[in-house]
């Protein structure tokens, strides 16, 4: 066991972990932050995407020990400080960008990075950036629409299919 110390959603945390403890296990089992989902556990689906030092990573494919000293943000850290939904989260709700909701945390975390890098992405750019995020309910249309809306683009002409 080794001790790791990191910041998760702005709070300093320190825990004993085994070498093979994954970030998903650390967040879900040790910190009880169960918003980070585990879909595939093989780095394919993106349900587990979190931000580590400002970069999106798949938490199922990173060890907790590797996050020593890091700033980690999970879906639980995405709402506004007063508890209201962030622009991206609100857009997912407004545009029905989720069905069962299992992929949603990863979609929101990935979308947040996309909009940081590219504040006004085209539909094609959004779909390309979401390549590592799989929605089993296949609701991509409204996910793309929600992200476009969150970026301030007019989506009134995009029909819900």
């Amino acid at each position: 066991m080794t001790k790791v110390t990191m910041t998760v959603n702005g709070k300093a945390v320190s825990k004993e972990v085994s070498g093979n403890t994954l970030m998903t296990e650390f967040l879900r089992d040790a910190l009880h932050l169960t918003g980070t989902h585990v879909g595939c556990d093989t780095s394919q689906c993106g349900a587990c995407v979190i931000h580590v030092d400002g970069k999106s990573v798949k938490a199922c494919t990173m060890f907790a020990a590797e996050a020593e000293g890091a700033e980690v943000v999970t879906i639980e850290g995405m709402a506004n400080p007063d508890g209201s939904l962030s622009v991206i989260q609100q857009a997912f709700q407004d545009h029905h960008g989720l069905q069962c909701g299992f992929c949603t945390p990863g979609m929101v975390m990935t979308a947040a990075k996309l909009l940081e890098e590219n504040p006004s992405p085209s539909e094609h750019e959004i779909r390309d950036y979401l390549e590592g995020n799989i929605c089993r309910c296949t609701g991509y249309h409204n996910i793309v629409k929600a992200i476009m809306a969150a970026s301030g683009q007019d989506v009134s002409g995009i029909a819900a299919e």
Binding site: G46, S56, V57, K58, T61, M62, T110, K113, E131, G132
Partner: peptide
Amino acid sequence: IGDPAVRNR
């Protein structure tokens, strides 16, 4: 290569 999260690691 892969997707953004894979490229970050």
